[in-house]
Design a protein around this nucleic acid. Structure first.
Lengths: 208, 208
DNA sequence: CTTATAGGATAGTTACACTATCCAGCTGGG
DNA sequence: CCCAGCTGGATAGTGTAACTATCCTATAAG
């Protein structure tokens, strides 16, 4: 199909597609001749992933460039780690993370959360260090409660999304994983909000 | 003190302070005469709150305008609810929230989370409705586990921040509450990230 | 009387994600 | 065979957000 047909198929304008081509998010079509290119299913998949990740999770063009680079490399674990950092906004945490954090390391060991190898581990260490520096560190016993809760929520939906991966291409896997991550994150944040509101109500509600 | 001294005190430029004045975030100083105004401690507090909420939690100028309007009204519970929605990004959830959600209502009743009266409650109902519509609704039993976890995390630090409120003005309370909310949210998100990464590792790690 | 400063207005800046125009070359349908 | 329509490439414009800079007149302290 040609560019205008790809646009009709995906709902994006030809101007947007040209923009994605310029930015390197969308690979060029197969050039039929100097002024006509042919696009296929992989271009449709790519555009759908771009649109889904921008509208659902709000990823930037720069983050999407990182995603497509990792799709081309083909390592799903590295790809998912990058998508996760982008969706959950963990981008620069790894930079100022301490090399190791006893509380975080012990916690991860207790819950079978692998070695200290990913952006997520670094982000958790950085957050605990930040909270400690502000005198707001939670006691270790509570961390285990949170750990069990997030473990269950992550199992619930991300696992099923990943289970079907590979069958339908990395683009589809990324869409499903990013959606699951985004929904789980939203649920936790909103439950936290209700709990915080109940705290505030206990503090101020009686005075009204 | 005059504008330039207020700028020196708070670290903001006079241009920024003029901008805050224009936007209605900072009340005008007491006019000594046509071209000189006097600023006091409440202006310092206000500027510090503006800078803290922008740098720590990334609030927009529009959100800050909502905050200062509610500070002027003086209802701390309403104020905190607004700050929470801004800090956690629950802004437009209330719009598309269903009037009631059986699962959410029952959950809130079991955990003593007050009536369905705030933006947080509406945001939780909206999220559960969204997840249900996408076939990704968590089973009710699991919600209780998350509820207990977030209840503990909200108690840990927000409660102590609120306890000292009133003594040092609403601005100081807003800074501490926003910081606590932001830190708690960051901790939960990063723990969720580690749990998700461990899921992905189980799915793909062995293949490497 | 000079110089710094105030408040008000207006315009400029940077970043982001498009969106619109222009262009010259080519080609398929009539 | 010829022209409407499409191509990739380039360039420029749009709108939002949060400042930042400049210009202006008035005024008062030294």
């Amino acid at each position: 199909m040609k560019l205008s047909e790809l646009a009709a198929h995906t709902g994006a304008s030809t101007a947007s597609l040209k923009f994605y081509l310029r930015e390197g998010l969308l690979p060029p079509g197969e050039a039929v001749h100097a002024t006509l290119a042919d696009y296929g299913q992989r271009h449709v998949d790519r555009v759908e992933m771009i649109r889904a990740l921008r509208s659902v999770a709000g990823l930037s063009i720069g983050a999407l460039r990182g995603v497509v680079e990792r799709i081309d490399v083909g390592d799903p674990l590295e790809l998912l780690g990058y998508v996760q950092a982008a969706v959950l906004g963990l981008d620069q945490d790894a930079v100022d993370a301490p090399a190791s954090d006893p509380a975080a390391d012990a916690l991860e060991a207790r819950h079978g959360w692998g070695g200290p190898g990913g952006a997520a581990h670094a982000a958790l260490r950085a957050q605990l260090a930040l909270m400690r520096s502000l005198g707001a560190e939670p006691v270790p016993g509570r961390l285990d409660v949170y750990a069990r809760a997030v473990q269950q929520i992550a199992e619930a939906d991300l696992a099923t999304s990943l289970r079907t991966a590979g069958e339908r291409g990395l683009e589809q896997m990324v869409i499903e994983a990013a959606t699951a991550m985004h929904l789980q994150n939203g649920l936790l944040v909103r439950m936290l909000a209700v709990a915080q509101a109940s705290q505030a109500g206990r503090r101020f509600g009686a005075e009204q």
